[in-house]
Design a protein around this nucleic acid. Sequence first.
DNA 1: GTGAAAGCGCTAACAC
DNA 2: GTGTTAGCGCTTTCAC
Lengths: 336, 336
Amino acid sequence: MAVTIHDLARMAGTSTATISRVLSGKRGVGAAKREAIMRLAQEVGYTPNRIAQNLALNKSHVIGLVAAALDNPAYVDFFRRIHRAVHDKGYRVLIADSELDAEKERQNIATMREHRAEGLIVFPVHDWRAAGKAEHFLHLRVQKFPVVIVGRLDDHGLDAVTSEQDECAATLTRHLIELGHRDIAFVGSDPSNRCIAERQAGVERALSAAGLTLRTENIVPDQPGWVEQLETLLRRPDRPTAVVYINDVCALMAHPMLLRLGLRLPADLSQVAFDDSIWSRYLTPPLTTTAERIEEVTARTLEVLFARMEDPDGPAVRHRVAQEVIFRNSTAAPHR
Amino acid sequence: MAVTIHDLARMAGTSTATISRVLSGKRGVGAAKREAIMRLAQEVGYTPNRIAQNLALNKSHVIGLVAAALDNPAYVDFFRRIHRAVHDKGYRVLIADSELDAEKERQNIATMREHRAEGLIVFPVHDWRAAGKAEHFLHLRVQKFPVVIVGRLDDHGLDAVTSEQDECAATLTRHLIELGHRDIAFVGSDPSNRCIAERQAGVERALSAAGLTLRTENIVPDQPGWVEQLETLLRRPDRPTAVVYINDVCALMAHPMLLRLGLRLPADLSQVAFDDSIWSRYLTPPLTTTAERIEEVTARTLEVLFARMEDPDGPAVRHRVAQEVIFRNSTAAPHR
DNA sequence: GTGAAAGCGCTAACAC
DNA sequence: GTGTTAGCGCTTTCAC
């Protein structure tokens, strides 16, 4: 087995207390002894056992990160930032993937608690209006466990940080209206998903403020064949002059079809979307879209989490971070 | 503080040993007692303290994942798969980001060891021919610590799993040669990086087998202005008829410039690259590129890791996983 | 079947 | 300054 603090004590002809003191940089040890112990530890390749240390201190030095789906590239930057900040405060991060399964999510949270994570950052799996059973979140709240819910509106009364979806959608839409568009289609309708619902609501709000109504053709990108549906729509003589996609990926997927149709972009069709995926700026034309302010979401998240870890009582806070609208060249005035 | 096994023992009027036995599903406890204890634990919301358990068992149930750069989207799928498999075996994953800094990498590995991770998966930061100081890897080897190095050729004699870069590069190149290309440019030269060097070597091998030589114009995509350099090259009358990019991102970044030049693709210029980024198939025309077989890399990695955890001795194994070449429509015969 | 007690490796009073 | 000792919460022999 690995060398322990006892071994060191024996070798150095001293006590475990002294060893502990020098290793954790506490004062009250003679310089000579301290020096000798440091060197000894170095020589024998002593590696402190954090498990034992954590048990003794009743701390874990661990922050748990529970992701709804680990394979979502949108998380990546967030992870990195969280990781860095947390690390700088002396914490490690234990990661768990809920694989879009609420039961796994429950399990993951339980596991985190067993490992005595000192704080939790959760991207919940669900965000439905018809909120299912989410007792695990209620438990967390009742027990005042430090946790912040990220990216979902259903915060169950816990601390939460989300990006606003509504205002940026409205901005995007107003932009189209100002260019002269009157016939705007929306691709991607799943109103049971709150995030999508908010985006759609923002679009409709801007439209109705201008006395217009949304053209929802029930093209839902989760279903196969939706690109063909969109193609059919765009072939009609009364086709829309602009389309709002629920996210960049949809715009990307539709792009080859648009070219096949011989549409000149953006002259013949204006397009806007959400999420600012990496490739969006390289599309031809570059796509006008919205971007989450990840650095701010991260900052708020950590701020809230650490504050809560200090003070488990106190009312839940809820942050909504504004999204940025990035205007590129995928829109133009309609020529009709 | 949370309720402990002692509290349960007291409440149930029994001993900690018995509680421990039923909670860890061991036999040798009366059915009635067992039942009662289970219910009690449930009622009071007992959460086992894994820290204490791990200390007693001298296990950590933790696998460490040390990433060179956590914000690389290419990792994402790998992470997910690793996570899932590891979880299924009853392990948690502790994650660390080296932020492309060798010193942080050293630190991360040290931390993992302090936390008594039972196995390590490392994406090393460096992979240079002029290998710098990598003592931390040597230590791991000397101490027979279970670790597998992923994605880098510099494996320091440790277990390793990498994707082959050479053969797929040759395949890509042969494909261009067979189409009739004789003048092929290579974008992205940094021979000190082993992965890039291998790709370039593969290209050159295929070329020289056909009696051709590579056109390296020293366009290195890390430097600003490289797209303009490429543009200059493509404006020359003796411009190449095909280009091999070191990765998809380069192809993507160059794309708008190609359109501006009025090149018809792929008729006027054939293009191939590496990495099969998500958007590559949606480019117009869809990009011919190579893809790592992530599922196989993952499988090999876990196989090797768990084998090593069982048997710390035994010679290091080294797997090279073949890459897949995905032919799409970004190439054509040159019309000259 | 069940309980007492000795650790696991480390920390932190409390003595000296 | 330095050592002694009693835990931290759990597991596991070893008796009974």
